[in-house]
Every structure is written in structure tokens, then in C-alpha cells.
Design a protein around this nucleic acid. Structure first.
Length: 720
DNA sequence: GCGCGTGATATTTTT
DNA sequence: TATCACGCGC
């Protein structure tokens, strides 16, 4: 345990406060992963806790894997049986054992977003509603919200607030029935069903709560209400709950995450010990100060001030471009310069607000011959050909999966169209499609030719199913591609054939790799792995520049970070303009991006952008006004562009102490604010009078008494 | 049952 | 720009 000595005092406190409720407010780069791993190691080695009695939640599978290997390295042991995983993965783990209590087989399938959406779409179609009048994604969202509020399908109708919602409630009811029929759970179920299980079967809950003597949660600011219920249940027996988070990095409010979990924690558990980690080990002070000043504009926060002993560092660089092509070009040149000055490609990240922005950037990088990897975007597993093949694999793994039956029954085309499918459904009644077809003689209404085709398909699936019991996922996939003539089918369209075939090959490589490395190489295990995989989990340790959204950059760090698209409408995004809280979340998003940088931070803003094939104009992000210009160098190229010239006028105006600046700054002058004065030291604002240029503040300094200042010229630093 | 043309629509972020 | 639902004609 030599690691303990290397921790700073608050970190050590966080590691060693093993009993009761502990809330760690961990600023960006303050070593929270370190604290988590040291704490687990400490529990196992010093407190002598059996590893199986420790449960840790992480935000991604990748983080879970890293945490496990770091703990094992610390203790120089292998295969420690402590639980670490995402909420979803942990939910699956529990539900696999307890499925019978909630009326499912323990071999239940997991419906991904797409399966679940298809099911909603099928239900809407089945009701003969128009898809454009009843958008499946909207309904799916509504269902998700009901589920997360623990409203069962039977009661949704009562909760519906208008006639449209009443229709959605009908879909919800049907949707639940269909899931049951398919022996499948959707993403929401993986958590809500655990909570339901614990409510209906307190004995089961008790068993788990007794097992887990210590529960730890990372990225606590991005947990939602139902996850909190799950955490609380699991920690209910021993009451040893350790959560780590940073309210300034909460970026999943739109997904139902609530900072209230952090803000209320010490009120919910009155034995809470709070530890603050404010020393940053990641970034230089320029980066940190710029980020601190920006985030200080947010109101709803606990407040903290990060500092670093890493030295001043280099200025941030800001580049204004006329359009996104020029922006991409300067991104490329910046990266090339960085590499020339000794940066490795893998030490550089390129971030943006929306996936759509990656196009221009990718093309510039390709032209510069710069290898990159892109996280997310059009995801591999969402491509048509991959979905088809996975559809087969899913159906083979779980013949009750009607959603994937419908997806693949006529792919490649085998003459089973709409009408035949309807007849199959009618004949099946309430039974699942694939299974009912295995009984002879049901399809009397289907013409002979079609019936033979259906029988052939049924036989194919049954054969593959038999095979899948022993064979690897890879072998089953090879068989599917062969038997269905899937390659030939893709070749029918010469325009897309090549890329699609390459994707199929990639899937084959993927399953092959899985067959060689996985503990259980069989189909079910493969499908489970890919169901829970997240974009960021696919980030490979390669010598490439990483491209990703700001959301995906959470938890990562890079020597150099480039953030593009600092424009009003993009960052902050349009959708947040109306709502202060959403605007604050956008600000946090930029804060998260900025604090990923260890040494160099580059910001890019473009005056024009191509949207749906039309050029549209954008103003520079309002957040740029909130980053103090003393830490920022506007690149000389910007002076050359039209956009840059315009902007210079406003920046020059801004750097002179004028009305505008005071308006922006004024919200920082309020009674009770702590300030630091170069000669008088620390003080507190007692009084604020007037506004704009004439604003006066009275400050009380313990060493020097009360002093009055004109806010405009007050040489304060603000403390929190 | 299938293919094709047309027009509407999308880009916010995702476990 | 790229994709997809829809409807028509074969």
C-alpha cells in the first residue's frame, strides 16, 4: 500500500473514511479515479473485506475495466471478484440470476435502442396509425419516462395528460406485453426491473444489500433518480456508501440525470462526511483559470476553486474562421504543428458539440494524411448490413424475438412480403412468430409457394439455433452469411457494395476476436457484450488523433485538446436558448471539454457553416465572452479572415474597461462574495451600490477594515 | 411482392 | 446532402 503515502490529505481522507456515507466533491483532474482505486485496494488489504462484498459503479465499461486492472495491479493480484460495472451491466448481472422473480427466463435478450424503436414502430403500424402523426421515437421517449418514474403499463393511462398521451399509454401497454412475449428487456428495464424486483421481493433485496458491505459510485453527478433508488437499496444494509462526483461536470440532465443527487446527499444521509478535492494534477494554470472563470457564470453550483502546481503554462489559442472548411484546415495545421513539436497523435483530442461537425474535420485530416479514430457518429452496430446480420444472430439466440424475426424474414428478399407476414402474425395469435411456425399446419391461408418459403426460413433458423448451442458466435455468423447468400445480396447494389462488404468483414473480425479472447465465446455471451457496449468503450489505444463529442470526452485527458464550433447555436446549442438550466448545462459541457487539456488548449469558431446543404451564418459563442482574454491568444491567421476582423473589433472593445464588460462582470459582485485584493488580502463584499460603470462595492478586509471601490477598476480576484 | 420515384425531414448530446 | 416512409405501377 505504498500508494497511500503519495496521496494528498483530502485524498487520503477519502480513501480511509471507510464507514458510513461519504460524498467526495472531486474537481476535474483532482485524482478521483486514483482515490477510488486506492480505496478499493485499501478495503481489501487493510480492512480485510472480501472482494466479493465490494460493489462499484462506473459510467462506462471501459472505466470499469480500467478500475479493475488498476486495483489488481495495486494489490498484485489477479481475478479479484469485486463487482465493478455500469448501472446497466450490474443490472443485467443481478437480473440474470433473479429473472424468474419478475416473470422472465434468465436467458432474456437485451433489446437495444433500435430493437425497441422497431417494436414501437410495429405497434403503431399494427394500429394503422400514420408514422408521421405518431412518431415512434416520441412515443418511445414517453414510455421511457414512464418506466423511469416506475409507472407500470397498466397505470400509464391514469398518468396521461392529454389524448395524445392516452394513445401513447396504449402503446406502452402493448409494448410491455410484446417484450414479455419476446423474453426481452430494454435498456430502461435493466435498471427499473432491479428496483421493481427489490420492491416486490424484499428478501432478494436484503440478500444483495447484505452481500455488499461497501458500495462506491463514480460520476455521481450524472446519476438519475432511479439509479439513486438502486444505489440506496444496495447500500441499505451496511450504510457504507461512497460517491464521487463534480456538479460542474453534470452533462446528462437531458437524459434524466439530476445534480440533486449530489446537492441533497448530505441531507438524505445525515452522517455524511464531505471531502473536497480541489488540487488539480492535470492542467496548467492558464487552462484551469480560463475554465474556472467560465464555470463561475453558472448559478446552481456548490462552488469550488481548482488550483494546480503545474505552473502557468501556455496561453489558450483562439482561431476565427470564415467557414468550416477553413476551420478544419486550421485544425489540421494546428495538429501538424503539435506533432512537429513533439506531441504524439494519441495525445491529441479533437472535440465538437454534434457528430455532424465531424465531416469537414475528417476530410481535412484525411487530406493531411493524419490517422484518426472517431468515436460514435454513425455507429458501427447501427449500419444496415450489421443490423441485418445481428438480427439473425439475435433471432437464433432467442427464437421468441419477433422484432428481429420481422427484420430478417425477408432479408435477403425471399418472397415473404407484407401480406404473408400479416398472415403469419394472424396464425400465431398471441404466440411468438418463429415458434408458432414450427408447429405444422398453421398457415392454411398462405399460398403454397409462400408457405414453402416460410418453411425453409423456419428450418434455417432452427438449424442455426441448434448449432449455436455449442458453436461460437463467429461460426454461427459465417453460417448465416453463407446460407443466406448475404454477400451476393450486398453486391446487387454496386454503389454501396464495397463499404458494406467491408463492414461485414469487420464484424467477422470482431466475432473472431471474441471467439479467441472471451471466457465464453458462445453467441449469447457475444450478444450480451455488444448490447451494453458504449461508443467510448470502442476507443482503441492507437497512435491516432481521437475525434469525439464533448459528451464522450468525459473522464478522459489529453496533452492537447482542440474544441471546434464555438458558436452560438452550436455551443451553446440552439435548443438551450430558452432555458437557463439547459444553458448552464451547455456551459458545463464546454467546461468539461476545456478541463480535458493537460498542456495546450485550442478553441475554434467559424462564421459560416454548411447545414443541410445550405450555408448559414453563426455568431461566436457567448461563452467566449466569459473566458478572460488575458489567458487567450487570438491566432494571427484570424486577423486575415473577414470573420476575424469583425471579431477583433468586439474583442478590442471588450478588453477596454467599458460598460459592456461591467454588465458581464457585474453578476460576480454580490454581497457575501469573497475576494482577494493584492494589498489588503482576502475580504468579503459588504455592500453593492449603483450599476454599470458607476457600480461601487464596499469590502471588509479583516486586516484593513472597510474599503470602497469602483467596481470597474477593482483589482479583485474572486474566491469561492 | 417488389422496385422505384417523390417529397419530407433531419442534427444535440447516449447508457 | 442523405435517408426514409409512402404510394404507385408492374
Amino acid at each position: 500500500m505504498s500508494g497511500l503515502r503519495e496521496l494528498n490529505p483530502p485524498q487520503r481522507k477519502a480513501v480511509m473514511a471507510t464507514e458510513g456515507h461519504v460524498l467526495v466533491l472531486a474537481g476535474a483532474g483532482s485524482g478521483k479515479t486514483r482515490v477510488l482505486t486506492e480505496r478499493i485496494a485499501y478495503l481489501i488489504e487493510k480492512i480485510r473485506v472480501s472482494p466479493a462484498r465490494i460493489l462499484a459503479f462506473t459510467f462506462t465499461n471501459k472505466a470499469a475495466g480500467e478500475m479493475r486492472s488498476r486495483v489488481e495491479r495495486l494489490l498484485a493480484r489477479k481475478d479479484l471478484p469485486f463487482w465493478v460495472g455500469t448501472f446497466h451491466a450490474t443490472g443485467v448481472r443481478i437480473l440474470r440470476r433473479e429473472a424468474k422473480h419478475i416473470g422472465f427466463g434468465n436467458n432474456f435478450a437485451i433489446f437495444d435502442e433500435d430493437d425497441s424503436l422497431s417494436l414501437v414502430r410495429d405497434i403503431v403500424k399494427g394500429k394503422e396509425w400514420r408514422l408521421d402523426e405518431h412518431p415512434p421515437s416520441l412515443i418511445r421517449n414517453r414510455i421511457s419516462r414512464w418506466k423511469n418514474a416506475l409507472v407500470p403499463p397498466g397505470e400509464a393511462l391514469k398518468h396521461a395528460r392529454d389524448t395524445v398521451e392516452e394513445l401513447h399509454a396504449q402503446v406502452y401497454q402493448r409494448y410491455s406485453g410484446e417484450l414479455q412475449k419476446c423474453n426481452a428487456l430494454d435498456f430502461d428495464d435493466l435498471i427499473t426491473r432491479v428496483v421493481e424486483l427489490f420492491t416486490v421481493h424484499p428478501k432478494v433485496k436484503e440478500r444483495y444489500a447484505r452481500q455488499f458491505r461497501y458500495v462506491l459510485v463514480d460520476e455521481f453527478q450524472d446519476t438519475n433518480a432511479i439509479q439513486m433508488v438502486m444505489i440506496d437499496a444496495l447500500a441499505s444494509q451496511h450504510g457504507n456508501l461512497f460517491v464521487v462526483g463534480d456538479d460542474d461536470q453534470a452533462i446528462y440532465g437531458w437524459r434524466g440525470a439530476t445534480v440533486e443527487n449530489i446537492l441533497q446527499f448530505d441531507r438524505v444521509y445525515d452522517d455524511t462526511v464531505t471531502v473536497r478535492l480541489e488540487e488539480n494534477y492535470r492542467s496548467t494554470n492558464r487552462v484551469l483559470k480560463a475554465a474556472n472563470e467560465l464555470i463561475a457564470y453558472n448559478k446552481g453550483r456548490k462552488g469550488k476553486n481548482l488550483w494546480s502546481s503545474k505552473g502557468e503554462g501556455e496561453c489558450l489559442q483562439l482561431f476565427f474562421a470564415d467557414d468550416e472548411i477553413e476551420e478544419a484546415r486550421s485544425v489540421r495545421e494546428t495538429i501538424i504543428d503539435l506533432i512537429r513539436s513533439g506531441f504524439k497523435r494519441s495525445e491529441i483530442a479533437l472535440l465538437y458539440r454534434t457528430h455532424a461537425q465531424s465531416r469537414a474535420l475528417e476530410s481535412a485530416l484525411r487530406h493531411g494524411g493524419l490517422p484518426y479514430q472517431i468515436i460514435g457518429g454513425v455507429r458501427f452496430y447501427e449500419r444496415r448490413e450489421i443490423k441485418d446480420l445481428l438480427g439473425y444472430l439475435k433471432l437464433v439466440n432467442n427464437p421468441r424475438d419477433d422484432v428481429n424475426f420481422r427484420r430478417v424474414v425477408n432479408v435477403p428478399r425471399r418472397g415473404i412480403g407484407k401480406v404473408t407476414l400479416e398472415r403469419i402474425e394472424k396464425a400465431a395469435g398471441t404466440a411468438s412468430l418463429s415458434l408458432s411456425l414450427r408447429k405444422k399446419g398453421g398457415l392454411t391461408e398462405v399460398p403454397k409457394l409462400q408457405r414453402e418459403r416460410v418453411e425453409e426460413f423456419t428450418k434455417l433458423i432452427a438449424t442455426l439455433e441448434l448449432m449455436a448451442r455449442k458453436a461460437t458466435a463467429h461460426d454461427v455468423l459465417v453460417e448465416i452469411i453463407d446460407r443466406t447468400g448475404y454477400r451476393e445480396y450486398l453486391q446487387e447494389d454496386p454503389k454501396t457494395a464495397q463499404t458494406r462488404l467491408e463492414n461485414v468483414e469487420e464484424l467477422l473480425v470482431e466475432t473472431h476476436r471474441f471467439a479467441l479472447t472471451a471466457k465464453d465465446p458462445r453467441l449469447a455471451s457475444f450478444l450480451e457484450e455488444i448490447a451494453l457496449i458504449s461508443d467510448i468503450d470502442t476507443l482503441k489505444a492507437e497512435e491516432t488523433v481521437a475525434l469525439m463529442t464533448l459528451h464522450n470526452s468525459k473522464g478522459l485527458e489529453y496533452r492537447a485538446v482542440l474544441i471546434t464550433g464555438l458558436e452560438d447555436g452550436l455551443l451553446p446549442h440552439y435548443s438551450s436558448f430558452e432555458d437557463d438550466e439547459e444553458l448552464e448545462e451547455e456551459r458545463r459541457l464546454l467546461y468539461v471539454g476545456m478541463t480535458r487539456a493537460k498542456e495546450r488548449l485550442f478553441l475554434f469558431s467559424s462564421a459560416n457553416r454548411l447545414r443541410f446543404g445550405n450555408w448559414t451564418g453563426n455568431k461566436p459563442s457567448r461563452f467566449l465572452d466569459e473566458i478572460p482574454m488575458e489567458h487567450v491568444e487570438v491566432t494571427s491567421e484570424s486577423r486575415m479572415t473577414r470573420a476575424g476582423q469583425e471579431l477583433f473589433k468586439s474583442i478590442d472593445a471588450r478588453s477596454a474597461p467599458q460598460e459592456q464588460e461591467i454588465v458581464v462582470q457585474s453578476k460576480r459582485f454580490y454581497v457575501g462574495a469573497d475576494v482577494l485584493h493584492p494589498t489588503y488580502g482576502q475580504g468579503t463584499i459588504r455592500k453593492v451600490e449603483g450599476s454599470g460603470r458607476d457600480m461601487r462595492v464596499t469590502v471588509y478586509f479583516p486586516g484593513a477594515g472597510e474599503k470602497k471601490f469602483l467596481a470597474l477598476y477593482a483589482p479583485f480576484q474572486f474566491l469561492r
